[in-house]
Amino acid sequence: MMKNILITGGAGFIGSNLSLKLVEKGYKVTALDNLSKQIHGNSPKNDSPLFKSIIDKVNFIEGNVVNKEDLEKAISGQDAIIHLAAETGTGQSMYQIHHYAKVNIDATAMMLDILANTKQHSVKKVIIASSRSIYGEGKYLNSRNEAVYPKHRLDKNMQSGNFEVDYPGETKPLQLVATDEDSKIHPSSVYGITKQVQEQLIMTVCPTIGIAPVAFRYQNVYGPGQSLTNPYTGILSIFSTLIKNNKEINVFEDGLESRDFVYIDDVVDATILGLEKEEANNQIFNVGTGKAVTVLKVVKELQENYNSNVAIKISGNYRLGDIRHNYADLTKIKEILGFNPKISFKEGIKHFANWVITQEVHEDNYAESIAEMKEKGMFK
Rank of each mutant, 00 (worst) to 15 (best):
E87Q: 10
K350P: 00
S160L: 05
K52T: 05
K300C: 09
L256G: 12
A371S: 12
T8C: 06
I61Q: 05
I209N: 06
S76Q: 10
P213K: 05
F252A: 14
M94V: 05
M94E: 14
R132S: 05
K374W: 04
V295W: 04
N34E: 00
Y191L: 10
K184L: 14
E146K: 12
Y135F: 12
N46G: 13
N42M: 14
Y191S: 08
I238P: 11
H325G: 07
N64M: 07
G316R: 00
S43F: 12
K28W: 01
I55W: 00
K300R: 06
F216A: 02
S133I: 04
G77M: 15
S36F: 00
V310G: 04
T208E: 10
K73F: 02
N307V: 14
L6T: 01
T30S: 10
Q78S: 02
N245L: 13
I211H: 01
K376E: 09
T241W: 05
I134V: 13
F339A: 13
T208G: 07
W355P: 03
Y327F: 13
A367C: 08
N282E: 10
S143C: 04
L112Q: 01
T88Y: 04
T30E: 02
I272Q: 03
T171Q: 13
K244A: 15
E146G: 03
N230H: 06
Q200L: 01
T118C: 15
A80H: 00
P150S: 15
A85T: 07
S258K: 08
P207W: 13
F345I: 07
E248W: 13
L337M: 08
D33I: 13
Y318N: 02
S76W: 01
Y318P: 09
R259D: 07
G321K: 08
